[in-house]
C-alpha cells in the first residue's frame, strides 16, 4: 500500500514534468533533430540562438512587455482593491465582480475583442497593443490578490496614519503599499510569468515587433530543431525564476 502511494506520487510528477525534462534534455542534443536517441551533449544550439538577432530582440520585447504591463496591472489593481476595500459604494459587489470577470473569458476572445477595437479606433498594432492585452488579463489577478490581502489590521493602521496628518497619497505610499508588499510582489511576479509566455494575445496584437512566444512559433513553422528546445528551456528558466521569487516574497515573509 505504501509502495503504491509512492508509485502514484512518482507517476503524477512524471506526468507533469516529463515534457519539460524532454524539452530541456534535447536542447543539449548533439545532432539535427530533438528526438531520441540522445546523441551526446552539446551547447551548440544555445550558441546558435544567442547569436540569433531576431530571437534576442524578441526576448527583449517579451521582457519589456512583461515588466511594463505587470507594473501597470499591479498599480491599477492595487488602487482598485484599496478603494473597494475602504469605501462602501452602492454596487461595490458588482464593481468587484466586473473587475474579476475578465479571468473567466478566454484569451482568444479577449484578443479578438481588442483586435476589433484597435482596428476600429485606427490604432496600429505594436508591442503597446500587446501590452494593453496583457494588462487586461493581469489586472483581475492583481486586483484579486491585493484585495484578499487587505484586512482590518491594515485599515486601522491607515486610520492612524490619517490621524497623524498623512494625506491620502501619503497613506498609500507610506502605509498601505509597504504593509501589502509581500502580496503585491507575488501579484507582480505572477503577472510577469503570465505575460512572459502568453502567445495568443501577443500573436494577434503585434505586427512587426513581436514577443518571444510569437518568434518561437514562426521558428516552429520551419520544422523541429533542438534550437527551439533551447529557446523553450530559456523561457522556462525565466518563468521558474519569477515563480521562485514570488514564493520567496509570499511565503517567507517575516512575522
Amino acid at each position: 500500500m505504501r509502495l503504491l502511494s509512492w508509485a502514484y506520487l512518482a507517476a503524477a510528477y512524471a506526468f507533469v514534468f516529463l515534457p519539460v525534462v524532454v524539452l530541456v534534455v534535447f536542447s543539449f542534443q548533439d545532432g539535427r533533430l530533438p528526438v531520441p536517441p540522445f546523441q551526446g551533449f552539446s551547447l551548440q544550439w544555445y550558441d546558435k540562438i544567442l547569436g540569433n538577432g531576431a530571437l534576442m530582440t524578441a526576448l527583449w520585447h517579451s521582457a519589456l512587455v512583461a515588466f511594463v504591463s505587470s507594473a501597470l496591472a499591479l498599480v491599477m489593481g492595487f488602487l482598485a482593491a484599496h478603494a473597494l476595500a475602504r469605501v462602501r459604494l452602492p454596487g461595490s459587489v458588482l464593481l468587484r465582480g466586473l473587475l474579476i470577470a475578465p479571468m473567466t473569458v478566454s484569451y482568444l476572445i479577449i484578443a479578438l475583442g481588442l483586435l476589433t477595437t484597435f482596428n476600429q479606433a485606427g490604432i496600429s498594432l505594436s508591442l503597446w497593443t500587446a501590452g494593453i492585452g496583457h494588462v487586461v488579463i493581469n489586472l483581475p489577478l492583481c486586483f484579486a490578490i491585493a484585495y484578499a490581502a487587505m484586512g482590518d489590521h491594515q485599515k486601522n493602521a491607515e486610520r492612524a496614519a490619517r490621524d497623524l496628518g498623512a494625506t491620502e497619497a501619503q497613506v498609500l505610499w507610506h502605509v498601505s503599499a509597504p504593509m501589502l508588499a509581500p502580496a503585491l510582489a507575488a501579484a507582480f511576479f505572477l503577472s510577469v510569468t503570465f505575460s512572459w509566455d502568453e502567445f495568443i494575445i501577443a500573436f494577434l496584437l503585434t505586427r512587426f515587433d513581436v514577443t518571444l512566444p510569437v518568434e518561437i512559433w514562426s521558428m516552429l513553422r520551419s520544422g523541429l530543431s533542438p534550437a527551439t528546445n533551447a529557446v523553450g528551456s530559456l523561457v522556462f528558466l525565466v518563468s521558474v525564476s519569477a515563480v521562485v521569487l514570488m514564493e520567496i516574497f509570499l511565503f517567507r515573509r517575516p512575522k
Partner: peptide, 20 residues
Amino acid sequence: VAPAQRPTTTVFQDYALFPH
C-alpha cells in the same frame, strides 16, 4: 475639518502601529 488637520491625535485600542 479632517482628522489630519485637527489638533487631536488618537491612541487606538489595537495600537494600529505600522508593522514595517
